[in-house]
Simulated scan of single mutants.
Amino acid sequence: MTRPRLAVVGNPENRRVTMLLDAAARRGVPTPRVVPWREVLIAGGARFDPDELVRLDSPGEDPDVDALLRGPGDPTRIADGPRWYASLLDAVGTLRGGRRLTDAEDLSVLFDKRRCHATLANGGVPVPVSPTSGADAPAPRNWPEVRELAAAAGLRRFFVKPAHGSSAAGVVAVETAPSGRVQARSSTEVAADGVHNSLRVRRLTGEAEVGALIDALAGELLHIEAWLPKPSSRGRTADLRVVVIAGRATHAVLRTSCHPMTNLHLGGQRGDLDIARAGFDSAGYGWDRALAVAERAAARFPRTLCVGVDLLPAANWRGAAVGEVNAFGDLLPGLTGLPGRADGLDTYGAQLAAVTGWADDAAA
């Protein structure tokens, strides 16, 4: 079998790129050519050989690249998301040649939560209720409009998310009561110089405090979706990140947290995956059926080799919905594949094992 020639557009020192190179070395695959995002953005493009398989990786965690995408400023700030999004898509459009492992149109949907939600819903994938699903949906400009849209959709507990955000940056989990009482939790902080992301999830209470935070975020193009009840694992709420490669769920991690956001960098922890497997099976829903929901979500992006699906189990494990699909959701260090699906392989090794056959099928 011909060994694939790989190229990756990424930030060379980032562990996403170095872990891919390590996986290639372990498999005896020729070292992928690394094309830095910084060079793409400064030079206005890059060119690839016709037989190169081109992987796009995250442009994050590099302050210089961040400044090129959305302008200078503190990298922790939550601002200029629409500019970042447009700049990223423009940069992807300057790449010439090669055969893509990450489709440009898929990427444009995956990094727009409103469009992604609509794409999933239109494909019959179970998703939380949302009054802002779709590119043509109303875009709330302030807290009163957020609250009005949520109330019209029957939502008392809901998430507010910047449409082009990632890693829970700018996400606010809001709870309202018939009495008018409002509270929220978020890792977002409002400072004199703007809105910033932090690693500490804090509680906000009262209409004034919650409203001020939402108003400060409103320029980011906001998405609203139902906050679904999650199951509990040892006193902590739980959901799953499922990595789907070439259409097949290969890796899964149970994420648990004492906060609504289960992201590991916000204090979430990896839980015992057997708890999820047993929960789905004992409830009669089935573990394989849950993985199939993640695969159905990934199937909406058939020209992209790998995505990470945030799977939301029902509180009683008798169902599952998809919260988000992540273009760069495969960074799960030390996690090996599911039995019978990617035995002994991390997420990068599994992609290398699948890449040649998938690329041939995708090009057909």
Score class of each variant (00 low, 15 high):
215 D>L: 04
310 D>L: 13
95 L>I: 07
288 D>K: 04
228 L>D: 04
17 V>K: 02
224 I>W: 08
127 V>I: 06
296 R>E: 15
354 A>Y: 01
51 D>P: 04
355 V>H: 07
199 L>P: 06
262 T>E: 11
220 E>N: 07
358 W>I: 12
113 K>S: 15
276 A>T: 13
188 T>R: 00
222 L>I: 04
59 P>L: 08
193 D>T: 11
23 A>F: 01
329 G>C: 10
314 A>D: 15
248 R>W: 04
138 P>V: 02
69 L>E: 09
343 D>I: 05
167 S>G: 04
66 D>H: 07
358 W>L: 12
309 V>C: 12
280 F>L: 01
125 V>D: 12
310 D>Q: 13
241 R>E: 11
51 D>A: 05
168 A>K: 06
184 A>D: 00
220 E>R: 08
106 D>T: 06
187 S>Q: 09
236 R>D: 08
75 P>R: 08
18 T>V: 03
252 A>H: 09
43 A>K: 05
227 W>M: 12
160 V>T: 13
219 G>Y: 09
14 N>F: 04
241 R>L: 12
4 P>V: 01
277 R>D: 09
46 A>T: 13
326 N>C: 10
51 D>E: 14
209 E>A: 15
254 L>N: 02
193 D>I: 00
298 A>P: 11
44 G>M: 03
31 T>M: 03
113 K>D: 15
73 G>V: 00
142 N>M: 01
194 G>E: 07
297 A>W: 02
273 L>Q: 09
293 V>M: 08
6 L>P: 04
60 G>Y: 14
3 R>I: 06
30 P>E: 03
278 A>M: 10
269 Q>T: 13
248 R>V: 15
194 G>H: 02
364 A>C: 08
56 L>Y: 07
261 M>W: 03
227 W>Q: 10
55 R>N: 09
7 A>L: 02
86 A>I: 00
118 A>E: 15
189 E>Q: 13
66 D>V: 01
195 V>T: 14
96 R>A: 14
106 D>A: 08
309 V>N: 08
4 P>G: 02
49 D>A: 15
20 L>Q: 04
282 S>M: 03
277 R>I: 08
341 R>W: 09
282 S>H: 13
35 V>C: 10
358 W>A: 11
149 L>S: 10
91 A>N: 10
293 V>N: 10
199 L>E: 14
307 V>I: 06
344 G>K: 05
106 D>E: 07
227 W>D: 14
278 A>W: 09
127 V>F: 04
255 R>Q: 13
103 D>V: 05
344 G>Q: 11
28 G>L: 03
196 H>Y: 14
81 G>T: 07
156 R>G: 15
187 S>Y: 01
76 T>I: 00
